[in-house]
């Protein structure tokens, strides 16, 4: 077992983990952050995307021990209580989700993209989220959601 200290959604956690534990499994089972989900085993679907020290990663492809000393933000840490992050608001307004399973990863990928590029073109959005698969929406409304989120976040400056 390996001792780790990871800050998840603003709270510091100390834990003993088996080295083979994936970050996503520790988040779900160790911390109870079940908002972050697993959709594949080959790093394709992106459903497990979280921010690790502020950058998007697929938490199925990081060991929990590798997050030792790091800060993780999940979909559950994006806003608190009844608050909505602009990306969350935009996804609701633009119907950027249907079943919602890809949504935590898609939202976190969008947050990361907009952090780096606050006003992406449609092509930049499509390229920027191509590490996340969605089977419901055909991405049309996801792209619109990211565009609208960019607008909302620009408006806040």
């Amino acid at each position: 077992m390996q001792h780790i200290n990871v800050t998840v959604d603003g709270t510091s956690y100390e834990a003993e983990v088996e080295p083979r534990t994936l970050l996503v499994h520790w988040l779900r089972e160790g911390v109870g952050k079940v908002g972050t989900v697993v959709g594949c085993d080959t790093s394709n679907c992106g459903a497990c995307t979280v921010l690790l020290d502020g950058r998007s990663v697929k938490s199925c492809s990081v060991l929990a021990v590798q997050a030792d000393g790091c800060e993780v933000t999940t979909i559950q840490g994006l806003s608190t209580g009844d608050d909505w992050h602009p990306v969350q608001t935009a996804f609701k307004e633009c119907h950027g989700l249907q079943c919602g399973y890809c949504t935590p990863g898609m939202v976190m990928a969008a947050v990361d993209l907009l952090n780096e590029n606050p006003s992406p073109s449609e092509e930049e959005i499509r390229d920027g989220i191509h590490g996340n698969l969605c089977r419901c929406t055909g991405y049309h409304n996801i792209v619109k959601s990211v565009q609208y989120a960019a607008e909302l976040m620009g408006g806040r400056k």
Binding site: P19, R20, L22, D41, T42, S43, C60, S61, V62, L63, V65, Q66
Partner: peptide, 24 residues
């Protein structure tokens, strides 16, 4: 060796490789 792990992790998860020691 485990670097960024983006090639190795799927291999480990699919149990296509079962190293006894991982050097991060």
């Amino acid at each position: 060796i485990l670097g960024g792990g983006q090639s190795l992790m799927p291999v480990l998860r699919l149990r296509m490789g079962e190293p006894s020691v991982i050097v991060d």
